[in-house]
Design a protein around this nucleic acid. Structure first.
Lengths: 357, 357
DNA sequence: CTGAAAGCGCTTACAG
DNA sequence: CTGAAAGCGCTTACAG
């Protein structure tokens, strides 16, 4: 129950000054300072014996390294939920693995004033996941923050973002490439008609829009039918908006599938905005007695950790989120060394052909 | 690019002393101190204008609140992976929601020396997820740590743990209750024979063992067959151990199902140690042409966030992990107020009847 | 090679 | 009601 030992306890026990103890324990910052082996040994031994570890607050106040990276786990207000899903988790896992190697820990930041964490020196760097919605209420606020970060050379990085207003250090998946792979697969399989299932909501994620546009471009002139009425996303498709629950989209897939079946105009292949939607689609198809892949091919996007074990195993575009988290973390470390470093990293997805399409 | 303003900048701008600024900005700790409205207003205005926020290191060094809760995300060495899965994520989401209300953030701690984070005052409290394996190499180490924590009245809490050696503050799911609900369902459905699919490995999780034992007890004397040879877990079942990949168990389900089918001795109902295993089981059943639930009923445990959207939607025991994370967090807050507080909370699971069994 | 001392940016008794 | 001053536990020039 005794107080945790401080540096002066170690100093007293070793019969040296606190300054000497500090020098022994921080060899890096006192590289040009020589300490006798005898003293060093004594101090190290006593520090170990007393189980001494430096007070975090004092270290912070003097040094500059917090040893922590901030991870912004917030979802947009529209999502109406504090819950993070497997998408963020996979990025987090990549970040975590890279950070661990350098002795860094992750601070999960919630609340809106992210930038203050950097300012008050509670974290050394910031990783933000950007859910870009078609209509982003907070865009100007975010841009202001990015601008300040850029001016001050703050180490930050944004995952899956593109920002036309100013250059933002980022790690992003190549949506166009993902759709090229998907289109190539569709053509190889010879599916004669294609539909798309995205988020059924007014303010959907830009990613779904980008993927749809890229797929449309790839399929143009190939003879594959890809009509507007087979694209179930947004609100123009006639399905009432589906309230967001966290970062989950299963219900969007359920409803898209139901509507498609009702319409009697079913594509041969349904490309989904993400795996969640594909899961909803498959679930509803089973209820409706539509066989996958014999009657309907289903293709996802993301490749969640368990997509290979679905019934049927999902054919999908693998978004290497773990790698992306890892690459983002390495960029952050580089930026801490060299504040001028600026990168926009694009990661190529791969195509996972499995059973669903 | 100018330096971040400090308390003395605010003091200078407002024409008062730093002490006064501090008092204005920390009304709680200076409750019995009166400050004139004029001064207060001036200080507040200037602080806002300069965008002042207290330096974290200095605050820590003086105060005692770090405003952060440590979350131990480590998996046992056997898991051979730094990856956290949706199980931990759900607990984290519960913790996060509760912490947010009090302005606390979560520090994801990896590495082995958790206790030092508490000692050096880098976190105010610690939440540990305990993966209890049948043979826990680190048990004595953990017990030593728990003992120290208990002696010092440290705020810590363990999720899903029971420790016979000493009392540990905890939040745990009631496995027995979960199996009572499962058995009641089996009897109501009239399934004449039952099997069990758990982890196929030497050193499996205690939870699977407990659930199996509880189910056995519940089914005894009911006329429902529950023979040893239909229990696919551990290594006695004859399946070669399946290497762990993170916290995922899909392959265990795959193999259990394959073996059961090969043996020609298929139960009418297969209870699974968790949802991952159930997913593997369903996936393999589909490949083998075994219809669920007509030929084989499958029941899981956990109720993952997407289990309701599986094909078929999974009948499973809902483990309220979010609530558990939340309850654990509230206990932690209580413990910070009152170091003597000691709780062992048991949470009752509920049964989710869906389509798979 | 080692120690005494200043100071990081705050908070908090203690005076007035 | 406000200020001057000590001190939280370290690190780091600066002497010696």
């Amino acid at each position: 129950m005794s107080r945790k030992p401080g540096i002066r306890d170690v100093a007293r026990a070793a019969g040296v000054s606190v300054g000497t103890v500090s020098k022994v324990l921080n060899p890096a910052s006192s590289a040009n300072i020589r300490i006798s082996e005898a003293t060093r040994g004594k101090v190290l031994a006593l520090a170990g014996e007393l189980n001494y570890t430096a007070n975090y607050g004092a270290t912070l106040l003097r040094g500059r390294r917090t040893g922590t990276i901030g991870f912004i786990a917030n979802l947009p207000d529209e999502f109406n939920s504090p819950v993070i899903s497997s998408y963020q988790m996979r990025i987090l896992n990549g970040l975590s693995a890279a950070a661990q190697g350098k002795g860094y820990q992750i601070l999960l930041i919630s609340g809106s004033d992210y930038s203050s964490f950097l300012e008050i020196k509670r974290v050394d760097a910031l990783m933000l996941i950007n859910f870009r919605l078609r209509d982003n209420q907070k865009l100007s606020e975010m841009i202001g923050m990015y601008r300040t970060f850029n001016e001050r050379c703050c180490p930050y990085v944004v995952i899956n973002n593109t920002c036309t207003e100013l250059p933002v250090p980022s790690v992003s998946v190549d949506n166009v490439r993902g759709m090229e792979l998907t289109a190539a697969h569709i053509l190889a399989k010879g599916y004669e008609s294609v539909g798309f299932a995205g988020e059924i909501t007014d303010n959907l994620q830009q990613h779904h829009l980008e993927r749809l546009a890229a797929l449309r471009k790839c399929l143009r002139g190939t003879g594959t039918a890809f009509p507007e009425e087979l694209c179930m996303l947004g609100t123009a498709c006639g399905i009432p908006p589906i309230p967001r629950t966290g970062a989950f989209n299963h219900r969007d897939g359920l409803e898209a599938m139901r509507r498609l079946a009702q319409s009697g105009n079913m594509p041969r292949c349904l490309v989904c905005g993400n795996d969640d939607i594909a899961q909803g689609v498959i679930c509803m198809a089973a209820q409706l007695g539509i066989r996958i892949p014999e009657e309907l091919a289903v293709i996802g996007f993301d490749d969640q950790t368990d997509s290979a074990y679905w019934n049927p195993p999902l054919t999908t575009v693998h978004q290497p989120l773990e790698e992306m988290g890892c690459a983002a973390c390495e960029y952050l470390f580089e930026k801490m060394e060299n504040p001028e470093a600026f990168k926009q990293i694009t990661i190529k997805p791969t195509f996972m052909e499995r059973m669903s399409g």
